[in-house]
Design a protein around this nucleic acid. Sequence first.
DNA 1: TTTT
DNA 2: TTTT
Lengths: 162, 162, 162, 162
Amino acid sequence: MSINKVILVGNLGKDPELRYTPSGVAVATFSLATSERYKDKSGEQQEKTEWHNIVAWRQLAEICGKYLHKGKQIYIEGKIQTRKYQDRDGNDRYITEIVADQMQMLGGRGDEGSSGGGGYGRQSSAAPRGDQRPAAGGGQKREPSRDDFEEPPFNPDDDIPF
Amino acid sequence: MSINKVILVGNLGKDPELRYTPSGVAVATFSLATSERYKDKSGEQQEKTEWHNIVAWRQLAEICGKYLHKGKQIYIEGKIQTRKYQDRDGNDRYITEIVADQMQMLGGRGDEGSSGGGGYGRQSSAAPRGDQRPAAGGGQKREPSRDDFEEPPFNPDDDIPF
Amino acid sequence: MSINKVILVGNLGKDPELRYTPSGVAVATFSLATSERYKDKSGEQQEKTEWHNIVAWRQLAEICGKYLHKGKQIYIEGKIQTRKYQDRDGNDRYITEIVADQMQMLGGRGDEGSSGGGGYGRQSSAAPRGDQRPAAGGGQKREPSRDDFEEPPFNPDDDIPF
Amino acid sequence: MSINKVILVGNLGKDPELRYTPSGVAVATFSLATSERYKDKSGEQQEKTEWHNIVAWRQLAEICGKYLHKGKQIYIEGKIQTRKYQDRDGNDRYITEIVADQMQMLGGRGDEGSSGGGGYGRQSSAAPRGDQRPAAGGGQKREPSRDDFEEPPFNPDDDIPF
DNA sequence: TTTT
DNA sequence: TTTT
């Protein structure tokens, strides 16, 4: 009964960090800058930069770790999530992050060495093959199969029944 | 390298139609009204209604066919698609549709008999069980498995490594 | 060169708080819950609620203060913003908020006494008339004029030139 | 009580066409391609391109006419609208268009001579100054004023009252 | 054809 | 703190 959706287009502040949970699940984190220009009261153009903490899991994490780098312009779709943690003094702290479920590289053609292309996330079986994961328990990754294609733009074997 | 995303909140003009392709793939179609209020030049409040052709496939089609009905308010996320077809005279015609990949029932609380709830689409394994499909070739439906869960809000077995 | 957009559909946890800055600008704040259902590893249905801090300014603030209340289901469109503040001990803290620029009441039909209707935000001149602001400097509110209408769905005085 | 929102990232198929209505209102039209990669049943990578008819009005039209050109990658936010017209034979035809209300140039830094920058649409007073409109009735364009600034990321004169 |  |  609810929607929690974030859409960002911005640039990476640093290269992503790719880590693995104890059970071998890939997690990529990076910060993404979005900048807003606005006129202040005196009519001056001002710019304000917002930094977003992005988190990607599993296959999307590995794609981020492999293809993204500092300065790259990307599109991110995901959801907002606030996580509680304890600081050094044991006090509760909260951090708000964007959990990505789609990522697209933008800014095209030979832009800084990115081979780029495609959109990544969810079902997307367009993802690069070959498992970059280190030895790890893993398990959650399911095997792609022949039937595993995406929502078809059209279905050559089927007559559209309307 | 591109994004094609539509977000609609509106009401169904009629009950959905649920059909099946020759190979047994479910397709639901319905029209969704969004209404916009605006002031015209004379300062009068006006309303303009836009009708959207919604198409849903597979499991989402079946959920739409089962739970949606005329008047229901829903959230739809999907993409724009223009399809070519021939009219009775053999002329090329084009129709623009929204191919849904997420649907949420809104307007809650026992609203008109909908048992409703949850959000449907993509990976969503929250979908009602039991196959409503008629005898049909099918095949594209893959078996859900234990590893088949969604992006975890958090992962109890894993320490978050950051 | 960037996009920072949030779309939420959720329910208010409490009535909004409407305040005014020293110079008389209205600010409404409230928290909005979005809930996600997911299957955990053991196949159990779980629910996780996310709480979003919403901030609305000016006319939209006043509409929120006037029409929204605890439990109401709304659509919010806005942007993510992280604000720094000092806690009681003088330590820097950060809070992430959604600065709303559009709000729509959902869930319809005489739902809990809301007179409701319309969509509010930006140019929207559909907003209730009559100034609810207390005596205050103000100033930023500009006067609506005859030319002040919104993007017209169509323009009766103009032939569309294509 | 409804939402009609489209978000596109794609490339212009041609230079925009900038026209004016009899009363002098600027209208820009252009087509925008979004491409989707997907795997077909035989496992082959396929690409399908969708062409969107974009319409922009007034100031946004002039910015599009001035800064956009064939091939440029942009972000568009707007709404879906289906318009009825008569073909040469007097038959009713329908065309679906995206009425833009925000546009952002993407793909950055000196990309093909675009001076670029900023986001355009709505209140955005960041728009280039100087009126490119030919002699024309006009009228709907309101004069920007000192009070005409956008939603402030923060307000230096005001203490945030929460 | 919906809804407010 | 909401809602289903």
